[in-house]
Design a protein around this nucleic acid. Structure first.
Length: 483
RNA sequence: UCCUGAAUAGCUCAGCCGGUUAGAGCAUCUGACUGUUAAUCAGAGGGUCGCUGGUUCGAGUCCAGCUUCAGGAGCCA
């Protein structure tokens, strides 16, 4: 018995006249004769030709959409149009039956993305989700390759943490207590000193603070792991469980940080374009079909493929928050009062509509905004000297992508102990809980910078999908933890 | 969490001003055909109209509450 070969390798070799063995799932069985077989290695199917007149009818009946089969036969140049090669079956074995009356993914059905989300355990078997998860895989690999090539250390920061200090959002609690009857202190509060970790713990909302600790010795580190936010966010851009990439680099300033982020994004997008050309072509078609449903003025000017290529060919636009406010104030929609939130003063955070205007209308490319007002940013960001007007900003940077919004958030960190402590006091961050973080500012502190990249938002952008719940295999969001 | 909209067959949807037995396409099943590739042709089966209550002689249709979903907003990555 010959070794099993994957369909991707088979279609690439096109070496005809040899006997091969192929395993996969039936996508279609036409005219009792032609099987379209897929094994997930590529979006393309291989056509199996069955000699139905000399095949057991009971076997033919079991070749149904979704069934797992093993085929041995000869690879030949196709006698029909539509494919270069096909397999003339000599032996077909049913590995797993699939009852067509119950199987929801029949070839000619047009299931909605919402319906497929309800059968997420099966949606990998569609062309769209096959393509998405192959692209996701490539992007994840490319992230590691990018950092590894540059000598970064992959640092595993903890999933369970005790600090809720960063203020990055609501946390999920981690406890071993019997929730109906937790031990109480004399004052009636839950007594976490008796819990597993002898203190209140939660799932991490960010590995950044621990990442900084690593960078203060290893120089260049990155994390790539799951992150949890218990925010009641019901949007196409948020998940309760998502994967985040967080590099942290000693001796980098904000400009180095921006260069790193831009290089990384371009690197991984290019990798996916090279590695997953067929999948991205398919996703480009899918998006074009979807956009046909929209009115003309809501369709994007570029196809997905063009958008990705454009992203590689152009520098991201870099400007300060203050400059962005000036542009927005003078913008047509602001003057015509088209914004739901008019841009008036300096100091408030930008609304989604403002970010979208800058990225999609004004610059028409990815934008990096820097130097945000100190008041709207986290405590650990490095403080700038006040400007001539006495405005106080921090060395923050957000990268905004078309259709996605904020994909990266980062900053140069405040390495000066005094400034950091002062800011923590102002913001009510408990210094005693973060004694270990402050120690890095006591022992050999140095300038450093880092950022967080929401991996699913990157996958959203590269696949052209519209809902973040469709680019992670089993999405976690409010009221949903099926599968 | 807020705003807006939606929920009808396995899927995608139609169902008008409240009126007999709720429709279509696809899928499924049966048969025909056999170089198809969203195969084609003929026939058949398939429904607690999301849930609870209300208005009415009569509710898929109107009203209220709930649940879930979608889009937008906030929070953010």
């Amino acid at each position: 018995m010959s070794q099993r070969i994957k369909i991707k390798a088979l279609l690439e070799s096109e070496q005809t006249g040899i006997d091969i063995k192929i395993n996969g799932w039936v996508r279609a069985f036409r005219q009792n004769r032609f099987i379209a077989l897929n094994d997930g290695s590529t979006n393309n199917n291989i056509q199996i030709v069955v000699d139905f007149e000399n095949t057991d009818p009971n076997l033919l009946k079991r070749i149904t959409v979704g069934a797992a089969i093993s085929v041995t036969g000869e690879l030949i140049a196709s006698l029909g149009k539509g494919q270069k090669v096909e397999i003339v079956a000599k032996d077909i074995e049913i590995l797993g039956d699939c009852d067509p009356e119950k199987y929801p993914l029949q070839l000619k059905n047009r299931p909605s993305l919402e319906f497929l989300r309800e059968i997420a355990h099966l949606r990998f078997r569609t062309n769209t989700f096959g393509a998405i998860f192959r692209v996701r895989n490539s992007l994840a690999f490319a992230v590691h390759q990018f950092f590894q090539e540059r000598g970064f250390i992959y640092l595993h920061t903890p999933i369970i943490t005790a600090s809720d200090a960063e203020g990055a959002g609501e946390t999920f609690h981690v406890t071993n207590f019997d929730l109906a009857n937790p031990p109480k202190t004399e004052s009636g509060e839950v007594d976490f000193s008796q819990d597993f970790f002898a203190k209140a713990t939660n799932l991490t909302v960010s590995g950044q603070l621990e990442g900084e600790l690593g960078a203060m010795a290893l120089s260049d580190i990155y994390t790539f792991g799951p992150t949890f936010r218990a925010e009641n966010s019901n949007t196409t851009r948020h998940l309760a469980e998502f994967w985040m990439i967080e590099p942290e680099v000693a001796f980098n300033d904000l400009n180095d940080n921006m260069d790193l982020a831009e290089d990384m994004l371009k690197y991984v997008i290019k990798y996916a374009l090279d590695k997953n050309a067929e999948d991205i072509e398919f996703l480009t078609q899918r998006l074009a079909e979807e956009e046909k449903q929209k009115p003309q003025n809501e369709r994007s000017e570029m196809s997905l493929l063009e958008k990705l290529q454009f992203c590689l060919d152009n520098d991201f636009e870099r400007l300060t928050y203050t400059e962005a406010i000036d542009i927005l104030k003078e913008s047509t929609p602001n003057k015509k009062k088209k914004f739901q939130y008019p841009v008036e003063g300096w100091g408030t955070d930008l609304q989604s509509e403002h970010e979208r205007y800058l990225v999609e209308k004004h610059f028409k490319k990815p934008v990096i905004l820097t130097d945000y007002p100190k008041e709207i940013k986290a405590f650990y960001m490095r403080q700038n000297e006040p400007d001539a007007n006495g405005r106080e900003t921090v060395r923050a940077m957000d990268i905004l992508f078309p259709g996605i919004g904020e994909i990266v958030g980062g900053s140069q960190r405040e390495e000066r102990l005094e400034k950091l402590e002062q800011r923590m006091d102002e913001m009510g961050i408990p210094k005693d809980e973060l004694w270990w973080y402050l120690d890095t500012r006591r022992f050999g502190a140095c300038p450093h910078a880092g950022f967080g990249l929401g991996f699913e938002r990157l996958v959203l952008f590269v696949t052209g999908m519209g809902n973040i719940r469709d680019v992670i295999p089993f999405p976690r969001y409010p009221k949903n933890a099926e599968f």
